[in-house]
Design a protein around this nucleic acid. Structure first.
Lengths: 149, 149
DNA sequence: CTTGACCTTCCCATCATGGTAAGGTCCAGA
DNA sequence: TCTGGACCTTACCATGATGGGAAGGTCAAG
């Protein structure tokens, strides 16, 4: 069993495998998060050395980079799981990926609009407030309004 | 002691006090969050009836509405704490409030820019992807790129 | 053989919010 | 007066993605 699933650390490195620290540096995903992704099933469990160290193949690091990139575009873990499945499915239809991406664009737009609404209101309040040493403050007055339920 | 700090439920209501459910409906803050704000010290501990029910004065409900409005503009709990302190300080300088509000505007703009960057990248990818039944997919190809560290 | 860098697991914290469970209270209607 | 249902109480757990730290094992260079 050990000969197939467990190797010595030095053997593993000679075979082009890396430990979690190197995988983290190479993928941009922290070691902490790599373990987390493994625990939640987002990425497969890697092999282990005889001492219990995780060992990652180049393809595993590639997967982590994929996750990193998708995270950078704001996809949730659940959506990234779907994207990974499509990535690993050679018979996928690109329309499926396209659909997920468009859903994500819509979600981003929703969040942007929400923040933009806040920003507009707040900018207006700041504009109305003199901002001097005196206590009169339209900003606080607005927050304290009773007439907008 | 009971005569000053504890009252019967019905007495409290006759005096214009409300229980947590009514305070929640009147302020828009859920009962759950009202208790949470109390626990974290954001809002003062209300009085209690003899049976241990929280009772809120109109001013307390007013404070909760203030919190609700500030939350709606994206302020964090910590910032709202500062705003409440300024609101309760009649000698405050409005410049202080203005400064907090401008900081919040800057933070909103930072978050908007971040999401906007994501959106732009993703829209470009979607544009490049035919989205048909075939597996070729520039979106996945981008996610899998090795050349952007 | 020591030292320091790295690995392992396990637990806790964030932030704002919601859920649930077990038990007590209030009030209106029969 | 009893009862049912709406409401309150506390206490604990969960979210999502991330980080921090402790306690202990492993590896490699000097």
């Amino acid at each position: 069993m050990d000969s197939t699933t467990r190797q010595e650390h030095s053997d593993a490195r000679r075979s082009g495998f890396v430990d979690i620290g190197a995988a983290a540096r190479a993928s941009g995903v922290s070691a902490k998060m790599i373990r987390h992704y493994e625990e939640t099933g987002l990425v497969p469990r890697p092999g282990r050395t005889a001492a219990g160290y995780r060992i990652y193949r180049p393809a595993d690091v590639h997967t982590l980079r994929f996750v990193k990139r998708a995270r950078g575009l704001g996809f949730s873990m659940a959506e990234i799981g779907k994207l990974l499945a499509l990535w690993n499915d050679r018979r996928r239809a690109s329309s499926e990926v396209n659909r997920l991406a468009m859903k994500q664009v819509a979600d981003l737009e929703r969040r942007i609009a929400e923040l933009e609404t806040m920003r507009r209101s707040l900018v207006e309040l700041v504009r109305c407030c003199r901002g001097d040493h005196r206590p009169e403050c339209p900003i606080l007055d607005d927050f304290a309004r009773e007439d907008i339920p």
